[in-house]
Each structure stands twice: as structure tokens, then as C-alpha cells.
Design a binder for these strands. Structure first.
Lengths: 239, 239
DNA sequence: TATTTTTACCACAAATCTACCACATACATT
DNA sequence: AATGTATGTGGTAGATTTGTGGTAAAAATA
């Protein structure tokens, strides 16, 4: 079930321009649309802007390395990635697969081998029904606030409002629990990963979060349960 | 008796992406809708957002393990779970622990065997008339006072009334014992954690609690059993 | 690398809770 | 009724918890 109207988009990331151009040539010859990047940063930036159908990623890169780039990509997206490494090193292989790469190829390789692997991975993805899309297409709702977990977007009164990473994480955490009472200790453990609870980071976050919810006329409030924790509640903040 | 309108949703949790994708493929081939997760945390998050018809859960997972995840899931939901274990010797643990899981399967297994077990468990669930649903939050009732333990909220005549930590704790303690007589010593030990009983804190608490119940027209009173302790009682406080 | 954004930390203020004291009242026993 | 003990209650001080503005550190981004 290959789409014929639109060419599949592939991002190729390698600091060696000769290599990336070579790969590009071969892939384009097979009908793919290809964009090349010489650093992980540029790749990440492009991924944020538009998600490709597949990425080939060199491990040795100036600046952010391939593993870290892979992790960041996989953190938020479900897109097949083929790692490219300079050495045939078992450690790298194991690590690469654990981090979630879908295939692995060692330099020097024949361009046609890479093309074959690209096609193979794409086929596997299609067969498994894994569409290239943002993860977990579910939504969370509470009052007039709507969270699209697939795109990590929060809407208040249908209007998108931007939240920072932790703000978002905390909000999702509370939304998943709706009106439940949640202890500060649990929040620290689950949202921050802290074990000790001699910490004021939650108060700090809440300060910012409440302000933002307020400014955007969210009809909900994060109630304080004195000495315990917090709970989502209907209705705007009381004054 | 397969529903044709809507595919049954199955969550597959395994840290090995190859395995979860394999399972996914086979299950989808049988008409199920499948979502995969590589950590227990992600699974739990998804379960909170949307409850599936069945879950297959690997025991060995990074972060929270399968047993703990199972416990958390079962704590609040009625949903069939099939455990997957890597080693045969873990099966003993499964058996010992069993109560929670509806079935288990040992790796390596044939995909079709898992599919068969999935269908079997689903059939059993349907036959037993058990619906996949969230467990109703626990509530305590006495006269016109209603306590939601999940949200830590107290309602008097359907209206939320706020209680402090100890007030709440004490109220729950009494509600759990309904009209039983409870000694001061027990209260001190169970609510405060004190061993000695040369203490007037209870009287102090009761002063505040009775006032609050009174002000909010609760049709119950905390009767004093002279020289012994207290007991919940129907009807408003006598004057 | 430089710049911007995000997050954490600090210190002080405000809110809230809780225990204690003192005295009043109720109860049981004699 | 008198007495001693237990309980009720108002007031209050101290402790704890939370809110908040300012700022530094860290992280993300350009």
C-alpha cells in the first residue's frame, strides 16, 4: 500500500557532506525526497518543523551526537531511524538498538545496501500498521481545557496555549487523575523523579502554571490540599 | 462473537520493541486495535487516559516492573491482563502473585499462542459478564455526610465542605467504624500515632470538628462515651 | 558561542493548622 | 451535696505549610 502521489521524505544526517550527498543521490534515484543535515542540531530543528518518513543518522557528529539526537527524536516522535556508525562496535550496536533505532549499518557500506535497508524498515513499519505519526493519539479533557497528547498541545477555550515541558508534564499528570487528591510526594517522584521531598519546586511550578491558566481564562483550578498536595477542580480560581 | 463495528483495543507493554511489534502485527491481523508501550509508566499513563479491553504486560521492564504496574492498574480498573515473563522460573512468582493476572505466558512463545490466549481471556470476561470499566471510587456515607476518599473531599448535603488534614483523618476513621464505640487510646494511636494518652488533642480536635459539622447542618453527631471515647450517631447534635 | 527561555533557588510574607492553657461544665462516686 | 475526674470551649501563640517576587543557574535554541 505505497502512496504514489507523494514521495516519502527522508532526512539524512551525516557530518561528511560527500557521504550524505551520495546517499541522497541514491535515495532520490529510488523516488524518495531527501534532505541532508550536517549536524544533529539542524536535524532536530527540521524534525520539529516537519516529521519525515524515515531518518538515517550518523553516530559520530560534531556537537550533539547521534545517540542523544536519537533519544530526543524518539522522546516525542514515532519515526523509523537507521543509525550509521563508523566502527563495527558491539557496544554501539547494543546501545543503538536499546535506544530504539530500527536498523543499523556500518561504514563503509554500499549505497544500495542502505537503500535496501531503508525500504525494508519502511515496509516493516507499514506492515506493523505503525503510521509515522506523533505518539498516543489521545486527548485529555477537564472543563474548558483540552490536551492533545499526540501533539503535546494544550487548548483553553479551543485556543492553543503554550506550556513549558514541566508545566505540560504536570498538567497531564493531574489531568490523568482528574479530581483525585495527589500528594506532593507522589508528584515529586512521578513528575520530577525525586525521592526526597524537602523541595519547593512544586510550589514554584504552580506559581507559574496558575498564572498561565488564569491569564488564559481556564475554568479550572489546582486546589491546594493543605499538608497533603493538590487536586484539579472545576470552576475558575476563587478570589 | 467479534464486534464488527468497533475493534477491541489492546495495550501491549514490552521493553523489547521487536517483540511488541510482532505481537501487534499478529493481533492486528486478527482485527484488534493495538497500542504498544516500552515502559510501565507509559502504559499506566495510557490506561489512565483510555482503558483498553485487554493488556499484555511483560514482567521485566525498565523502571516500574510488571507486577507493580499490574497492581496499580488493578487497583482502580477492571480490565483483563495477561502477564508475559522471560523465564520459566518467574512463573512461580506469577503463580504466587496470581490473583491479579488473568493469564500468563512464558517467553519465547509462538505469537499465535498469545493471540489464542487473548481471545480466550476476552471470551471468559464476556461470558462472566464482566465489563471493562473503572472501579467506582470508594466512598463512605453516614447520614447526610458523604466522603470521597479518592479526592479527599467531604460533602454535607451534597455540598463540599473543607476539612483539615487531621479533621479529615479522624472523620474517615470514625466513618469506617460507623456506630462503633472507639476508645480515646485507639484514636490517639491510629490517628495521631501517639502511644501515651496523657493528651488533650482529641478534645481539641473535636471542638473544631463538631463546630464545623454543626455549621454545615450535618445530621450526625460525635457522641461522647464518658470515660471511654466516642461514637458516631444519627441525628443532629442535641442542644 | 551567544541569546533566549526555562527551571530552580532563596527569602520573606501570608495563610493555615495545631497544640496548649485556662477555665467552665458535666458526670460518677461517695 | 461534695468531691474528684473527665470533657467542652474560647483564646492564643507557635509551628508548619504554602504563596510570591526577585534572581541565579541551567537548558534549549539560534
Amino acid at each position: 500500500m505505497v502512496e504514489k502521489n507523494e514521495a516519502k521524505l527522508i532526512y539524512v544526517c551525516d557530518d561528511d557532506k560527500n557521504i550524505s550527498e551520495l546517499i541522497k543521490m541514491y535515495l532520490e534515484n529510488d523516488g524518495f525526497e531527501v534532505k541532508t543535515f550536517d549536524t544533529g542540531e539542524k536535524l532536530l530543528s527540521a524534525v520539529r518543523t516537519k516529521l519525515p518518513n524515515l531518518i538515517t543518522l550518523d553516530i559520530m557528529l560534531p556537537g550533539i551526537n547521534g545517540f542523544d539526537a536519537l533519544e530526543k527524536i524518539r522522546d516525542k516522535n514515532d519515526v523509523p531511524v537507521i543509525l550509521v556508525s563508523a566502527k563495527d562496535n558491539e557496544v554501539d550496536k547494543v546501545r543503538g538498538f536499546n535506544e530504539g533505532s530500527d536498523d543499523y549499518i556500518v561504514k563503509p557500506f554500499m549505497p544500495l545496501e542502505l537503500v535496501a535497508r531503508v525500504k525494508n524498515v519502511l515496509r516493516r513499519f507499514e506492515k506493523a500498521g505503525t503510521k509515522v505519526e506523533r505518539k498516543v493519539p489521545e486527548a485529555l479533557d477537564f472543563s474548558n481545557v483540552h490536551i492533545e497528547t499526540s501533539t503535546m498541545q494544550v487548548f483553553i477555550n479551543k485556543k492553543p496555549v503554550s506550556f513549558t515541558n514541566i508545566e505540560y508534564k504536570f498538567l497531564v499528570y493531574m489531568f490523568e487523575r482528574q479530581k483525585e487528591a495527589v500528594t506532593k510526594k507522589d508528584i515529586l517522584a512521578d513528575v520530577w523523579g525525586y525521592e526526597e521531598d524537602d523541595n519547593r519546586v512544586i510550589d514554584d511550578l504552580l506559581k507559574r502554571l496558575r498564572k498561565k491558566l488564569d491569564e488564559n481564562k481556564a475554568k479550572l483550578s489546582i486546589e491546594t490540599i493543605w499538608g497533603v498536595g493538590y487536586r484539579l477542580s472545576d470552576g475558575a480560581k476563587k478570589n
